[in-house]
Amino acid sequence: MSTDEDCPETEPARVGEFELLVLLAILRQADQPYANQVRRDLEENAARRVTRGALYRTLDRLRLKGLVEWEIEPSQVPERGGHPMRRLAVTRAGVEAVRQSRTVLLTFFDGLGGALDHR
């Protein structure tokens, strides 16, 4: 039983806006690439409310696309009540996808001149 959604896509890995933001946020958390930090970063700096469920779903989706991977770390702080954490990492393909998105965006932003200022 496999549908298109269930099958991991290999090439090319296209990402949506929120996926791109999540990838960027993971990359920004140099020393603490954990979901809570990623979420906080997004909420504080991308000026949007990010629900925990949406973030987990996106992470699952990105992992299916092969753009994100994680490993499970045992918790060593009492705040987590002994529950483990996911240490997130952007894969090589993930980095490539981010790079591709940046190129596309820059191409489209480039040459707009003052078009954005008049609106």
Partner: peptide, 28 residues
């Protein structure tokens, strides 16, 4: 509540993480 509602229809959730990425503890 929000988490449960969102995760109930998570079509992207996979069965288990690859064995190579897991190690020790309750999460294993």
């Amino acid at each position: 509540l929000d988490l449960c509602l969102q995760m109930a229809w998570n079509p992207f959730r996979t069965a288990d993480p690859p064995a190579s990425l897991r190690r020790g503890g309750a999460a294993d």
